[in-house]
Design a protein around this nucleic acid. Structure first.
Lengths: 249, 249
DNA sequence: AAGAACTATTGGTCTGACCAATCTGTCAGC
DNA sequence: GCTGACAGATTGGTCAGACCAATAGTTCTT
């Protein structure tokens, strides 16, 4: 047999994947920085000892992952991957599991409760102003579900931002699309009666940050979430007992 | 001009990306479930009206993202993406930002503090036994940095698992690699004197879960983290003032 | 009926060519 | 001398056909 000439490859997984891993490691290691331009495809293909279609499979994969931006006629440029891709992927991973939309709120509470503690320490004047502004828009958009939801989001994301924790902010951004889904369906079933109450809860949370009282802030925030949760359950029960006969498919 | 037959495409971004998006949307929408086999490449290429190399660029990209598993001679099969990929990507995204390793601990605290509250409600006998077991190994491996670190991780991840929140667990798993990095460097500078104290802290946290007291559990956990943080700072200051002259490059 | 050999299917790769967008350098015109 | 337009070179985008390698299904032998 002629099986005696494959020792030059670490672990052969196919040409495309080999090139993919090689280039990716160059990016994550910092050897290739954002903005750098890769050599032309024909040249790279020669260097990696693969054909151009195979080399392109690797490049395209990196591009889809956000590591590269390929511009026709110009070249392939290293790009800082966007957190939005993580978000997409996380969304999909979680969406595979049943009832995640009900569960995702736990992650939100986790992040915001820690963020608000840090915010009590680190929030700047600008942070507080931003949160105050979102509080104002919250008041002005009580009757608009869409704008109101946006103001609500800005209030909460303002808290996270005020924590000055990049990791918390990154996670929060990654969760945002999923939050939006559960958020929309939640807000839809909230009638006008409870809204003033929710506004007051937001105010109290904000004031606790202004007073720099972490424990109080977290407790009020937890209470805010708990009330929302309790209310959602009641609504679901009510909706279920009413429309139970209609429920089909 | 012959430009009058591209209205069937949403927005033409090139063949490969078009195919990629089409197939990906079929996966995320559930139209293609895990385990399903895709048609042969030649057939797919015909269906999407592209050449095989282009079709392969799309397939390879999906494979690199974990959506597909391609087996030579057999076919391309839809696969449930692994959260580890999110973790990798998250790691890279965060690693680009400076000082994330010091900041990632905030995300950990956030998740665990919420998880421990849920654990107080939902922890099963098996959960408690698992945590108790990790507590035992923590005692048995006080002198081994590696095994001790592993026991410590099992204790904390046991808490998260006991929360029975898939979202929190998913996030925690995503953070784990980054935690390991900061964890190792932290544990290395912890001398033996403080360890018994840390073990006691773990015990108290555990007992609070057993007693089903969320507030107490969270407070003790926060205290545990705070002490670790405080200690790390002291160590850094000490190390800095001692080795300051040596510090080079 | 079980195992082996064969064949069809399917992914993996290569070559070479052509098109399209971009970049660059030259040259005419101001 | 500077500017703008043109033309060629560079580079990515795509295609076609061919061949190899691994797998799966079939058939034949034992």
């Amino acid at each position: 047999m002629v099986a005696a000439s494959r020792l030059d490859e670490t672990h052969d997984t196919g040409g495309a994947e080999r090139v993919f891993l090689a280039l990716r490691s160059r990016v994550v290691s910092g050897e290739l920085k954002a903005g750098d331009r890769l050599p032309p495809e024909r040249e790279l293909a020669l260097k990696f000892n693969v054909s151009r279609p195979i080399l392109r499979e690797a490049l395209r994969s990196l591009a889809m992952l956000g590591f590269l931006e390929i511009i026709q006629g110009s070249g392939a440029y290293v790009r800082q991957p966007d957190i939005a891709l993580v978000s997409d992927f996380l969304t999909f991973c979680m969406a595979q599991q049943p009832d995640v939309l009900d569960d995702i709120i736990q992650s939100r509470i986790a992040i915001e409760c820690q963020a608000i503690r840090l915010a009590c320490e680190k929030a700047s004047e600008a942070d507080l102003n931003r949160i105050a502004a979102s509080l104002t828009s919250l008041l002005d958009t009580l009757d608009d579900p869409v704008l109101g939801g946006q103001a609500d989001y800005e209030f909460h994301s303002g808290i996270v931002r005020a924590s000055h924790s990049p990791a918390l902010s990154t996670l929060y951004r990654a969760l945002t699309p999923l939050l939006m889904q559960s958020h929309v369906s939640r807000r839809r079933i909230v009638p006008s009666g409870i809204r003033n109450f929710l506004v007051d809860a937001h105010k109290e949370v904000f004031l606790s940050i202004v007073d720099r009282k972490p424990d109080e802030a977290e407790n009020r925030l937890r209470e805010h979430f708990a009330i929302g949760d309790e209310y959602r359950r009641k609504s679901l029960i009510a909706a279920f007992s009413k429309s139970s006969p209609d429920r089909q498919t």
